[in-house]
């Protein structure tokens, strides 16, 4: 955990605190596994063939790198207003730090117990670090890192993703 010296209190208080605990909006399902494999031409029989999945992984599972897929909200849902966003902690930082633009600078993940079809996952977001204001190629901004830790319905750790973002203002913005 680390924080630059010049952060507003509201931002400083976010660092290291688990936030936005949430459950996946639907049980893990095979349709998205097929969509993902088809989008990248992934022919791994573990994801296409029942017999292989049973023999190798004890049943149908999702590709580990799909971890973040299960936590992105539906684009629209009844009763929702405005754009629904994953990684709310990141969007909170953009607003609190008045940095309207952002890009993902790097992405790290570690994977635990396989995610199985039918699982229900729980996640939380932890702001791990926020750097000082600096000049970048895109504009004036800061780098920050948010961990997303996920467990399954048995409490088993299924993985953690860490996203480092550059939040910035374009010149003149």
């Amino acid at each position: 955990m680390s924080a630059a010296d010049d952060l507003p209190d509201a931002v400083r208080k976010m660092i290291g605190v688990p936030m936005y605990e949430a459950r996946s909006e639907f049980p893990i399902e095979i349709g998205y596994v097929y969509n993902t494999c088809a989008a990248v031409g992934n022919g791994n029989p573990l994801y296409w063939d029942d017999e292989t999945a049973q023999a190798v992984a004890g049943g149908r599972i999702a590709p580990p790198t799909m971890l973040s897929v299960w936590f992105r909200p539906h684009y629209w849902a009844p009763g929702a207003s405005g754009e629904r966003k994953a990684m709310q902690a990141h969007f909170d930082l953009k607003a609190l730090l008045a940095l309207p633009e952002a890009v993902v600078a790097s992405n790290e993940a570690s994977f635990g117990e396989p995610v199985r079809i039918g699982d229900v996952l729980t996640t939380c977001q932890i702001v791990r670090s926020i750097g000082p204001l600096k000049q970048t190629r895109l504009g004036t901004g800061r780098f920050w890192t948010v961990d997303v830790r996920s467990t399954n319905q048995h409490g088993d750790w299924v993985g953690t993703e860490s996203y480092t973002f550059l939040g910035y203002r374009r010149p003149g913005q």
């Binding site: 993902t36 494999c37 989008a39 990248v40 031409g41 992934n42 022919g43 791994n44 029989p45 573990l46 292989t52 190798v56 590709p63 580990p64 790198t65 799909m66 973040s68 897929v69 992405n107 993940a109």
Partner: peptide, 17 residues
Amino acid sequence: PNNAAWFERYITDWTGP
């Protein structure tokens, strides 16, 4: 996340299931 899926496909094309 799609870049991650591409890397996963690349790696497991090589390792097998």
